[in-house]
């Protein structure tokens, strides 16, 4: 009996979509056989994803930190419950990879779950590390709090297609940003599955939007879309130049990772990546009766 295959879809605004352009690109298994048609998202899809993020972002930012923590932890639970399936999806992509394939499917899933749990815990704590009460000389109460920037663009690298993607997304959403992410182009399998996991994680639709498609074709729009307030990527020098030049038009924040980054490394787990996607706001008020 013929098994039916699952049509790969992107996850945008809490819905599973194909590209508005109708374009797809095929991915193959290790032996070169056809596996699936992946949506090749257009600039317009990206724009729609930004709209979806803009709609969901304020509500997400307004959730209590405790609530965000629980929802992120729930995401970890959901990934754990489908760990084997995710490992298979990663393995699928791994076989496809030409060289330098990354951490290995099972390890990558374990590390990803760990990373989710780590950031879930930060949601109601990072403010106590990043914020401050400032001892000014005048009779004023002065404090600095952090706020999410808004919508953050994520360009995931080709390798470690789940762990790297989550490592770039998690610091942004922990503080209440919404994300529009472009998955690994050659190994989108994990991102497709991650969309399904996000959908049942209690994370409001639109907070994380996952696109698949051509990195080269979309990078310029990611760089120049003014509603995106920050962009983070593991980027080559040429890509970095494109991103930073495009970002300059709207003074967008650009956070780059060395392509040689070890995504398993412990230094990805700290409050400092969260700092990359928050604005520090300082408030003054006089003290007087």
């Amino acid at each position: 009996m013929l098994t039916i295959t699952k049509t790969p879809k992107c996850y945008v605004g809490g819905k599973f979509i194909r590209s508005e352009s109708g374009a797809v690109y095929p991915v193959h298994d290790a032996s070169g056989g056809f596996l699936a048609n992946i949506p090749s998202c257009s600039r317009k899809d990206l724009r729609n994803a930004v709209e979806a993020a803009a709609k969901a972002g304020p509500g997400w930012a307004a959730r209590s930190p405790y609530n965000r923590a629980q929802i992120l932890y729930r995401l970890g639970e959901m990934l754990e419950s489908r760990a084997d399936e995710m490992a298979a999806a990663l393995a699928c992509g791994e076989q496809r990879a030409s060289a330098g394939s990354g951490p290995g499917a099972a390890d990558e899933v374990r590390a990803s779950i760990g990373r989710i749990v780590h950031f879930a815990g930060w949601a109601d704590k990072y403010e106590q590390v990043l914020g401050s009460v400032n001892p000014v000389a005048s009779p004023h109460f002065n404090f600095t709090v952090t706020e999410p920037m808004g919508i953050v663009a994520v360009l995931a690298p080709e390798e470690a297609p789940l762990l790297a993607l989550l490592t770039l997304i998690l610091p942004a959403i922990t503080s209440g940003n919404a994300v529009v992410a472009l998955a690994s182009e050659s190994r989108p399998d994990a991102a497709i599955l991650l969309g399904e996991i996000l959908a049942v994680s209690d994370l409001p639709g639109g907070v994380v939007n996952l696109l698949t498609g051509s990195r080269e074709g979309l990078i310029d729009t990611f760089a120049t879309h003014e509603h995106l307030r920050a962009v983070t990527a593991s980027a080559t020098r040429a890509e970095a130049t494109t991103l930073q030049q495009g970002a300059a038009e709207s003074v967008k924040r650009v956070v780059l990772h060395d392509p040689a980054t070890d995504w398993l490394a412990a230094d990805h787990e700290s409050p400092w990546p969260i700092r990359d996607f928050v604005e520090a706001k300082t408030v003054w008020h006089p003290i007087g009766a």
Binding site: S138, P139, H140, P286, I287, G288, A289
Partner: peptide, 9 residues
């Protein structure tokens, strides 16, 4: 109306 102490000083 009220007066802000630090401001008036």
């Amino acid at each position: 109306g009220t007066v802000d102490a630090v401001g008036v000083e």
